[in-house]
């Protein structure tokens, strides 16, 4: 465990908590892509099947269980509890365009052709693109509430810190995970445009982020 990894995990946790608390407090999921949240729940489910096969540490187990529970809670709030506030008209990204290539790639490029390894690879590839329905929704409506942008900021920060973690691990442990690093870098690129807007608009005190 290095400082980048820990900070990355904390950012990830903060992002998910921000979203959950926002939905709970405002009793609304307006502007939130339910599709992205379902994809994230699928990411955690397929990746953390290793909870049943290997024990790494108490930290590892607790964080995995917390991520799983919170992602399912978010999906529950959007599609069940506050479903009448769910903005389905603007959440129109076609997820099959993500799922089909991601499923195909995880069968082609993996560390071992076993169900658990294919599912692990699937989760890594899917996480790289899971935010696209949310970014698509913001582009479509042309705006995002600042709290939604804080969520996206911490999610992007988590990805950036994981890259720093891999650079650190490469130099100190000679660890290099090709699948995770390549898709992690791709994923981080999706946030760059958003980061620019976040710094130039939201951090200058705008209540909403309006796209140019």
């Amino acid at each position: 465990m290095n400082v980048f990894r820990l900070a990355g995990d904390v950012s990830h946790l903060v992002a998910i908590i921000i979203l959950l608390v926002k939905i709970w407090r405002s009793k609304s999921c307006a502007g939130i892509s339910g599709k992205s949240q379902v994809l994230f729940a699928l990411v955690f489910t397929t990746r953390y099947l290793d909870l049943f096969t290997v024990f790494i540490s108490a930290y590892n187990t607790i964080m995995k269980v917390v991520f799983l529970a919170m992602s399912y809670a978010t999906v529950y709030l959007i599609y069940m509890r506050f479903r009448n506030m769910y903005d389905s008209e603007n959440d129109t990204f076609r997820v099959e365009f993500l799922l089909v290539p991601v499923i195909g790639l995880s069968f082609l490029e993996n560390y071992a052709f076993t169900p658990l390894e294919i599912l692990w690879t699937f989760s890594i590839f899917l996480e790289a693109v899971a935010i696209m329905p949310q970014l698509f929704m913001i582009t479509k409506t042309g705006e995002a509430e600042s709290i939604t942008t804080h969520y996206l900021f911490f999610l992007g920060l988590y990805r950036a810190l994981y890259i720093a973690n891999w650079v650190w691990r490469y130099h100190t442990e000679e660890f290099f995970d090709q699948i995770a690093v390549v898709s992690g870098v791709v994923q981080t690129i999706f946030y760059c445009d958003f980061f620019y807007l976040y710094v130039t608009r939201v951090l200058r005190g705008k209540a909403k982020m309006i796209l140019p």
Binding site: V54, S57, N60
Partner: peptide
């Protein structure tokens, strides 16, 4: 090993 590291990262 490399595999354990993968399962260690979240």
């Amino acid at each position: 090993s490399q595999e354990l590291v993968r399962h260690d990262e979240l």
